[in-house]
Structure formats: C-alpha cells, structure tokens
C-alpha cells in the first residue's frame, strides 16, 4: 500500500449503519426539475431532497440523466448550448436559478469533483490553493498551512510533502483525484458533487476515497454519481435510481437495494438490467 493511502480515515466497519433521513433538514432539493438541451428532454420532473450531512448516490443505466442532474446542482449545464430548464433547485431553501444569484458564490458552496482527475497545470501546492486564491479566502502567510491541512485531510500529505512544488502530473491517477478533492475542499463547500470519482481508479484508491467520503459527512452533504452498485451500497445513506430521465425511486440505501418498491429498481439492482 502506498504511503498516501496508509492513513485511511475510517474503516468500513466503522461506517454508520443507518441514518434516519426523515428527521434531517434538507441541504439541497430539486423541485419538479425538468431540463434538456434543444429539443431533447433529459430529465423529467425530478423531486429529490439531499438531507444535510449525508451521502446520496445517484444510480442508473447510461443515459438515465443522473450526471445531468448532478451537473445542474451547481449550474455546470449553463454553458451547454441550448440548455433549458423548468422547475427549481433549492439550496438551503433558496433558488439557485434566481436572478442575482452569483455563480461564483454558488460554486464555492457547491463544489464538484470530476470523473477524470483534472489537476491544473501548476504545482501541487498551487492546485490546492487555486480556489483559495481565486476567492481570496486567506492571506499569503496562511497558504502553506492550508496546503498541509487540506492534503492531510485527504491523506495525501505524506506522499507529497517533499514535492509540493512539483507538477501534479507526476502523481498516480488516484493521488491526482485526491488532489482534486483537496482542491475542492479548500474553498470550504457545504455540498460536494462527485461524478463517478473512482471510475478511472484502482481498487485501493477507490477504497481510500470511499472511506474519505464517509469521513467528510456529516460536515458536508455529498452527492455521488456512480455506476458501481456496490459502491453506492458502501458509501450512500440514500440512493436514488434514475431510468430514462425519470427518478424512479429514492430511499435509504439498504431499503432500495433489499426491498425496492418499483419493479424497474428491482431489475436494475439485481443486475437484470444494465
């Protein structure tokens, strides 16, 4: 095991078994969200709440709209040509689409990690600081401490402490993804969106990131898109199943996998539909 992954924050055995989702306030909620591109409708009337301090997994076959939903939660779809939407997304009860909402502020509160690690072409330390500098969160003399704190938070510090000035592209894929996670955490988001964050990583890095996600709740609210059903079972408090642009079913993870109420969910989670 590489040094970067030795300091795993928690082990699967310590993961919380069940969180009562009904009693928690909602951090983020979609209200009858319908959206598409041009003449194509990608999501149809999605109503889904993301309880504060929990992990929600979005699952479903390719093209079911789960990634599109994720990307609309911090308005990353805005730039896509011919993008349109109806309905709303509420962050702490406030519409993120309301006129006057500052995209820069929204994305500082709702951070995102992508499928492929995408460190910036600057030193490892500068990558962690990219958002900190952009938002002028801390003065120069605190930068070094922030870099160390964030890198150790994701368990990467030991592996890179002697080469903070080097290029991030000398790191392994898993380490690059951890760096991207540290970069996203450094601006202090309330919600973290993850788009299949481990699909390009090896099993050990995957396990490390999964336990890291568990360690980040309940301080953060996490939404993760995954194709890996086992991963959803391991990390998510709540799981939402999407099929053909509709939210078929959302439930506490164990219930969705063991007693799904919809036949489509049952077929998907049992592997009879890919």
């Amino acid at each position: 095991m590489s040094p970067a992954l030795a300091s795993t924050p928690t082990t699967p055995a310590q993961w919380p078994e069940a969180v009562d989702l009904t009693t928690r306030p909602v951090a983020l909620r979609t209200c009858d969200l319908t959206l598409g591109f041009g003449s194509r409708t990608v999501l149809q009337g999605v109503n889904l709440g993301f309880p504060k301090g929990t992990v929600t997994a979005l699952i479903g076959p390719t093209g079911s709209g789960k990634t599109t939903l994720l990307r609309s939660l911090n308005r990353m779809n805005d730039k896509v040509p011919k993008h349109w939407h109806q309905g709303d997304v509420l962050l702490d009860g406030q519409s993120i689409f309301a006129p006057g909402v500052q995209l820069m502020a929204l994305r500082r509160r709702v951070g995102m990690v992508f499928q492929r690690p995408n460190p910036f072409p600057m030193s490892i330390a500068d990558n962690v600081l990219a958002g900190v500098k952009a938002h002028r969160i801390a003065s120069r003399q605190h930068h070094k401490a922030i870099v160390k704190a964030r890198l150790s938070e994701v368990g990467l510090l030991d592996a890179v402490s002697d080469r903070l000035g080097s290029s991030p592209f000398t790191l392994s894929g898993g380490q690059q993804q951890l760096l991207c996670l540290a970069r996203a955490l450094a601006v202090g988001p309330d919600v973290l969106l993850l788009d299949e964050p481990t699909s390009s990583l090896d099993p050990i890095s995957t396990e490390h990131i999964e336990s890291l996600l568990r360690a980040l709740v309940p301080a953060l609210t996490i939404v993760i898109v995954t194709h890996n059903l086992a991963q959803a079972r391991r990390v998510a408090d709540q799981t939402a199943f999407f099929y053909q642009g509709r939210l078929v079913e959302a439930a506490p993870t164990a219930r969705l996998f063991e007693e799904p109420s919809e036949p489509e969910t049952a077929r998907y989670v049992s592997g009879r539909m890919g």
Binding site: N74, M76, K79, L103, M104, A105, L106, R107, R108, G111, M112, F114, N118, P119, F120, P121, A130, G131, A134, H135, C180, R183, A184, V187
Partner: peptide
C-alpha cells in the same frame, strides 16, 4: 481545465 475552474467558482 475550464470545467475545473468553473467548478471552483473562479
């Protein structure tokens, strides 16, 4: 790179 910058609210 652009998406990463956007997602950080730069």
């Amino acid at each position: 790179y652009r998406e990463g910058a956007d997602a950080l609210g730069m």
